[in-house]
Design a protein around this nucleic acid. Structure first.
Length: 437
DNA sequence: TTATATGATTTCGC
DNA sequence: GCGAAATCATATAA
């Protein structure tokens, strides 16, 4: 019976430090002196220790009696305190873990990919970017694959949310169950609220590790989906007819210097509806590719492109003439400039045209006062004229189209001076009409 | 199925 | 970093 004081003291916990227990003991009928208290506690402990040796009925009866004992809450308080100060504190230090960076990364990724967070029309910016990358080209294929991508992403999103919900529900159910169980058990063994709390924490950690696995596999699924669609970007797709025409028009009307500036490339890209991938491509890269290929292939086999050149030259000349006939002095709205005008890259304003025609009869078309688009018009007109045999004498002395712009070294004159859409030649005397716009 | 056309990529020089 | 040239890969026509 002297086990109890030893127990108390061995854990550094004395009765005096437990107001509840002290109170109970003072208020109780078990006596107010120290011996009486020791006897009382000792009895209870003895009964607890011997409870397993008794028969079931007897044990039940004893259990009930113990449960109803006036000293029980006080004793449990003490035991809880001891537990907390020993086992739980040790376990607690071991279980404390740093904030999960991995989980945060996964969460951020899922958010960025449009899997978690608010739904934005079937995908996030990343999804749109990936889808844009997929399309690359023009037209229906793009939207088809885009929607295909979005559909698959939505599917992943759906599965993810369903599973997440399931896990959360299971977690809540299990937590409630365990809490009820512990509360129930707390009637027969000392369980502090802190211990219950800790247990809940453990359950949540376990479930969050399951959730992490779910997030990880979702991320993997999205990555696979994305890479599959991004691989499709590499797949060659022909530009549509309209896009090729726009590019060709620009090329042949800037034949002496077919090097569009970054601005011009972007503009052309827009006009051609060539979507540039935000993932890998810089804007205008597709246009750059096209011009790079075109220059090389044109130079390699000028004869083959003769007919095409004639066609576009004639087309451009006709446009220029019609513009001229209107007698407009201001910049035409159809002037392809950096301000983003619509329409094809045809001839510019009549003033420029007039000057260019004049220049054709002289030595130079790059003199002071020559406005934007002069070069393109000159290119075009020279070509047309050379084909029709007109201006033979005066033009024979100047640069003829055959091949226009390519010098003896096989390179383009002025190349690779970048030019804007509006002003292909940026010679010393040229006027930048694009900046005026 | 083959040839050709064409968009994309890589390599190299400047 | 840009462009030329070579090359790859694939779409399309024959």
């Amino acid at each position: 019976m002297d086990e109890q004081p030893r127990l108390m003291h061995s854990h550094g916990v004395g009765m005096a430090r437990h107001p509840g227990l002290a109170q109970n003991m003072q208020d109780g009928t078990g006596g107010t002196d120290g011996d009486g208290r020791k006897q009382d506690i000792g009895d209870i402990l003895q009964q607890i220790m011997t409870i397993t040796d008794q028969s079931l009925d007897e044990a039940q009866a004893r259990k009930h009696a113990l449960n109803c004992h006036r000293m029980k809450p006080a004793l449990f308080n003490v035991l809880c305190d001891i537990k907390e100060k020993t086992v739980l504190s040790i376990r607690g230090t071991q279980e404390e873990e740093a904030p999960d960076a991995q989980l945060m990364r996964l969460d951020n990724m899922l958010l960025a990919e449009g899997v978690s967070g608010p739904e934005k029309g079937g995908g996030s910016a990343a999804a749109a970017a990936a889808a844009a990358a997929v399309g690359g080209g023009v037209g229906q294929d793009n939207s088809t694959e885009h929607s295909d991508y979005r559909a698959k992403l939505t599917q992943i999103r759906g599965i993810y949310h369903t599973e997440l919900e399931k896990y959360e529900q299971a977690c809540n159910e299990f937590t409630t169950h365990v809490m009820n169980l512990l509360r129930e058990q707390s009637r027969t063994r000392p369980i502090s609220p802190k211990e219950i709390e800790r247990m809940v924490g453990i359950i949540h950690r376990k479930f969050s590790s399951i959730q992490m696995q779910l997030k990880q596999s979702t991320c993997e699924a999205v990555m696979i989906l994305r890479s599959r669609f991004l691989d499709a970007r590499r797949k060659r797709r022909n530009f549509n007819k309209q896009a090729t025409e726009i590019l060709n028009e620009y090329f042949y009307s800037h034949l002496s210097n077919p090097y569009p500036s970054e601005e011009a490339k972007e503009e052309l890209g827009k006009k051609c509806s060539i979507t540039v991938s935000q993932v890998q491509y810089r804007a205008g890269t597709k246009v750059s590719n096209w011009f790079g290929n075109k220059r090389i292939r044109y130079k390699k086999n000028i004869g083959k492109f003769q007919e095409e050149a004639n066609m576009y030259a004639a087309k451009t000349a006709v446009s220029a003439t019609s513009v001229s006939a209107h007698g407009s002095q201001a910049n035409s709205p159809s002037t392809p400039n950096s301000a983003g005008s619509a329409g094809s890259f045809n001839m510019s304003n009549s003033g420029d045209l007039f000057m260019s025609v004049q220049a054709l009869n002289g030595d130079s078309y790059q003199g002071a006062g020559v406005g934007a688009n002069v070069q393109s018009q000159v290119d075009t007109l020279r070509h047309v004229i050379s084909q029709t045999g007109g201006y033979s004498d005066s033009l024979a002395a100047s640069q003829m189209y055959s091949p226009q712009g390519i010098n003896t070294n096989g390179g383009w004159q002025d190349a690779p001076t970048p030019s804007s859409v509006t002003s292909p030649i940026e010679g010393p005397g040229s006027v930048h009409s694009d900046t005026s716009n």
